[in-house]
Computed example of a mutant assay.
Amino acid sequence: MKNFALIGAAGYIAPRHMQAIKATGNNLVAAYDPNDSVGIIDSHFPDADFFTEFERFDRHIDKRRRANNGRAIDYVSICSPNYLHDSHMRFALRSGADAICEKPLVLNPWNIDGLIEIEGDTGRKVNTILQLRVHPAIVALREKVLAGPKDRKHEVDLSYITSRGHWYLQSWKGDVKKSGGIATNIGVHFFDMLHYIFGGLQQNVVHLSTDTKAAGYLEYEHARVRWFLSVDVEDVPQAAREAGQRTFRSITVDGEEIEFSGGFTDLHIRSYEEILAGRGFGLEENRTAIATVAAIRNATPAALTGDYHPFLRK
């Protein structure tokens, strides 16, 4: 049994980490969040210590470390706002623990270089949740592409709309300096998936970039990709809206829909299993996706010419 600490216990994604820690037979001993709406802990680890001040959480972890020959905590799971991930991973490594960090790992690719240095200094490791890499449908598609002609470029359309209410832009997620913007916050794991399946990135063109939606064109070694991301319910196709749907997810490869909507609830557990077995995805695996979203964030949108997503026509 491994001992875990968790940073960001009141966040949306934290329960999935608690479930994964419990499902893999491990123990959450301490958690931190400046917000105290964390009753969900009782469903999983009612004996976990909880702190609303980072300084007290830091002291608690340090005291445990000193009392247990430097390894009181084996892993720190990080579910904090995106802009704090870098700092919290550094804290985990310097506390003698490995880190398990939610996406996006960091906001800019050069942050990865600093974390690699600290891994070397501490001997500890950063793992990240790239859950689509362990999704059976995505794994099967990657194997199919790898087995196909080396010079073929597939035609891919990616559409992801996950509606959010007015609260979204009032929260840290609506602040580009804290979230990295819409492509970073809701899209980074899709961009990682595209790189994982179709190889190295060759071209990155942005056609639309606002607080609530973004779109563009990406070319990889084995694919040409038109992509569209949004948190605006008005972008959900009309037929889906009329059916009461507020989320729309679609990936087509050469005109064929890739069905991967099922199985999402178990992907964190599977990710934890891989990490605990020493097969987690580390810092370098994140570099292409982080560089992709950083470039999108800083790009000047191009004119709607050439390959652009069909949703932009309206």
Rank of each mutant, 00 (worst) to 15 (best):
S159V: 11
I269Y: 06
I269Q: 06
G306R: 11
F260P: 02
K63H: 14
I61N: 03
D211C: 12
D151F: 08
L218I: 05
I290P: 00
D49M: 14
G174V: 05
A214C: 09
N35H: 13
K173M: 14
G200V: 15
R66Y: 07
L6F: 03
L93H: 02
I251C: 01
D235K: 08
E119M: 04
V145P: 00
D36F: 12
N69E: 08
V231Y: 11
F264Q: 13
I197A: 12
P149H: 09
A99M: 01
Y308R: 08
Y12G: 08
D62E: 14
I100S: 00
W227Y: 15
L28Q: 06
K144G: 09
I290G: 02
G123H: 03
I138S: 03
G180Y: 00
A31D: 09
K63W: 13
N35P: 10
F50S: 06
P81W: 10
T212W: 06
T52A: 09
L141A: 02
W172Q: 08
F54P: 03
I21C: 03
H60M: 11
L304G: 11
N82Y: 13
E102I: 05
H222D: 11
R65F: 00
A30H: 07
Y75S: 04
L312A: 03
I13V: 14
T122A: 06
K173H: 13
L141C: 01
R279V: 01
A214L: 06
N108S: 12
F91R: 00
A239L: 15
A239K: 15
T265A: 12
I296D: 03
P136D: 04
K150H: 13
A31P: 10
L107C: 01
Q131N: 08
L194P: 10
N68W: 04
D74L: 03
E285F: 05
I112R: 00
R71F: 09
F51K: 06
S43C: 07
G280M: 00
I118H: 01
H88G: 09
R64G: 07
K63F: 13
S209T: 12
S37N: 15
I116W: 07
Y217H: 05
E257T: 15
A137D: 04
Y160N: 10
